[in-house]
């Protein structure tokens, strides 16, 4: 499989805190990689660096083999990297259609710049088509305000937005947080669909069960470093938990027996 995203020796400090020390990883086409780690392990710093929330101090980022620099969220999006943050991806007071195209609004009279009128017909049609394609058009109207949607519906909207813009890399930050069982399954199904459609997914989650359900590979971070990288087929729940906490749980279990 072709390499889509490669991070080499990324470093980031906040004052005297070294949040990221020499983090390197590779993401290939059409694979789901789970990024695991305890609170403060550096997962958030890593994905924020990739999505352009803040620049890295040192290290290189390659997209499809080409070295790039990502300093703003816009630059990340233009490189095909879409990030879906927990709870912060949508504007609740805007309609679904307006959220789907936020920052990339279809307009008439483009020369008017920010004063250009929105192409409302196109906005609506494209939004409806998208909702239909991802299979949620029956329940949702493109003009409905996002504030009227459930958490799972919001995640579906955010994910479908990322898919719509044909993002090469989709980063999901705790996508199943605060979701019910049904909604969680919906989101995980989405992740599988994304992979099937050729997108690469970097999944950040606390729920290891979900990882085993959808991920191809697992990357574990601890104290700003990547400490392990394994394919899901070659590992099990217990050893992954050991890697996250840094304690050898399976040895402990054996001793207990």
């Amino acid at each position: 499989m072709q390499e889509v995203l490669r991070l080499q020796n990324l470093q980031k400090s906040f004052g005297s805190v070294r949040a990221l020390k020499n983090a390197s990883l590779t993401l290939r086409e059409g694979e789901v990689v789970a990024l695991l780690g305890d609170n403060g392990a550096g997962k958030s710093t890593l994905i924020k660096a990739i999505s352009g929330v803040f620049p890295i101090d040192r290290g290189d980022i390659y997209v499809r083999g080409e070295k790039v620099s990502i300093r703003t969220t816009r630059e990340a999006m233009d490189l095909g990297i879409e990030t879906i943050h927990q709870d912060t991806s949508l504007a609740p007071d805007l309609s679904i259609a307006r959220n789907l195209f936020l920052g990339r609004e279809p307009v008439n009279l483009k020369w008017l710049g920010v004063f250009a009128p929105l192409d409302l017909a196109k906005l609506r049609d494209a939004a409806s088509a998208l909702l239909k394609r991802v299979g949620i058009s029956k329940k949702l109207d493109a003009d409905a305000l996002v504030s009227t949607l459930s958490g799972g519906e919001r995640q579906s909207i955010a994910i479908s937005r990322a898919m719509q813009f044909a993002a090469k890399v989709i980063i999901l930050d705790e996508p199943t947080n605060n979701l019910g069982v049904e909604e969680t399954h919906g989101v995980l199904r989405f992740v599988k669909e994304m992979r099937a459609a050729g997108h690469s997914v970097l999944l950040i989650t606390h729920n290891i069960h979900h990882v085993f359900e959808v991920a191809d590979r697992i990357i574990v971070m601890r104290r700003g470093e990547i400490v392990a990288e394994q394919t899901v087929a070659d590992t099990d729940l217990l050893s992954v938990e050991s890697l996250i906490t840094g304690a050898d749980l399976s040895a402990l279990m054996k001793r207990a027996q």
Binding site: T72, T73, R74, M77, T88, L90, A91, L94, L102
Partner: peptide
């Protein structure tokens, strides 16, 4: 659209560029 989005959820708007 931008003005409403910024007031509604600034982080979301910034994340969309």
């Amino acid at each position: 659209n931008w003005i409403s989005a910024i007031g509604s959820n600034r982080n979301a708007a910034v994340a969309r560029g």
